[in-house]
């Protein structure tokens, strides 16, 4: 299909320009906003320590730890992928970032895959049995679950399974300094993952379920479902190939937006379970007023929003052939 090949039509060019401008604006905000935080690294560092600094020493430190207001320089460094050094950890920001990213991706990715699969299938099946007792029970239960914030589910799971039953570890992503075989390591990672993952899955399922059910109910009423039934197709085929396929769009949007806001999304859960992902990194950096790290995390998460919105535009066209750019 020629619709999938790349042409730089005015509309697409416009899209590219819009996205570039948005990216530039975000880079500027990531540069300027963290500077507006009250306090600075030096105050954060020495406020709670017994060390007393003379005014001279303090001024010297401040001069060392303060970036000169130079956006151009910031931009140039950015292009060179030079994100600077963390004040607090004394390592390159990129190293910190790359260390935290896989854990967040692992946690969030699995959470999304599991919650979307379960929520979607439950939603499809429930909507197919509309007005039955099972469906009503499901909707009620899910609405209730949707009302419980992840901060309480997280704490409750932690108290029950980590503190009382001691089935799962209470913190971390892997057992530190353990030299074990690969598979033992995988098992260890999964063991650590279980609680934060369960918290996220419980938090995400109701939304996915309710969304899938609602859009399914709209689709089921469509005449082409009647056609599919008249064709004598098996019920599962009608549910998934005909109805669910059309109910997918809102769910994909939700998935995309969730992914885009991944760092803020996992911040709470990562803190509760002390999971060493991006959320924890951002939290620590803000506490320490570690400006380069804050800037990098803010910048990357906002660029991620842009990238995902762009990707969604492309995915939509595959899901629903009616969405197409005018040529």
């Amino acid at each position: 299909m020629n619709a999938n090949s790349i042409h730089f039509t005015p509309r697409r060019l416009g899209l590219i320009i819009t996205f570039s401008l948005a990216a530039l604006a975000m880079i500027y905000l990531s540069y300027s906003l963290p500077r507006l935080l009250p306090g600075d690294f030096v105050t954060a560092m020495y406020a709670s320590s017994p060390v007393t600094l003379s005014a001279e020493q303090e001024a010297e430190l401040r001069a060392f730890y303060t970036q000169p207001p130079d956006f151009y320089n910031y931009l140039v460094k950015l292009v060179k992928f030079d994100w600077g050094y963390s004040y607090a950890f004394l390592t390159p920001v990129s190293a910190l970032f790359l260390e935290a990213l896989p854990w967040t991706l692992l946690l969030l990715g699995t959470a999304h895959i599991i919650s979307i699969s379960i929520g979607f299938i439950a939603g499809v099946e429930a909507s197919w049995r509309q007005d039955s007792r099972i469906e009503k029970g499901f909707v009620g239960g899910m609405t209730l679950l949707e009302g419980i914030p992840e901060i309480s589910t997280g704490v409750i799971l932690l108290v029950i399974f980590a503190l009382n039953l001691q089935w799962f570890p209470a913190a971390g992503a892997e057992t530190a300094y353990a030299k074990v075989s690969f598979w033992a390591w995988v098992a260890d990672v999964c063991h650590h993952l279980a609680l934060p993952l369960a918290t996220l899955v419980l938090a995400y399922i109701p939304g996915n379920f309710l969304l899938a059910r609602n859009s399914m109910i709209m689709v089921i009423k469509a005449p082409f479902i009647t056609t599919a039934r008249a064709k004598g197709l098996p019920s599962r085929r009608i549910r998934y190939a005909h109805a669910a396929r059309n109910a997918l769009l809102p769910l994909v949007t939700r998935f995309g937006l969730r992914l885009a806001f991944m760092i803020t999304g996992v911040l709470v859960v990562e803190r509760i379970h002390s999971y060493p992902g991006l959320g924890t990194l951002l939290f620590n950096a803000i506490q320490a007023r570690d400006l380069p790290v804050i800037q990098a995390v803010v910048l990357i998460s906002s660029l991620m929003v842009l990238a995902i919105i762009l990707a969604l535009e492309l995915v939509y066209r595959i899901i629903d052939p009616r969405i197409e750019y005018e040529r």
């Binding site: 005449p223 082409f224 056609t227 008249a230 004598g232 396929r245 629903d320």
Partner: peptide, 27 residues
Amino acid sequence: ESALNEIRWDKIAMVFQNGAVNLNPVH
């Protein structure tokens, strides 16, 4: 329903009214 499915389309088929809305938009 299962016995009906054997008959549907095989013995009795129907052309529904209003055209395009009877076709699944994504296939």
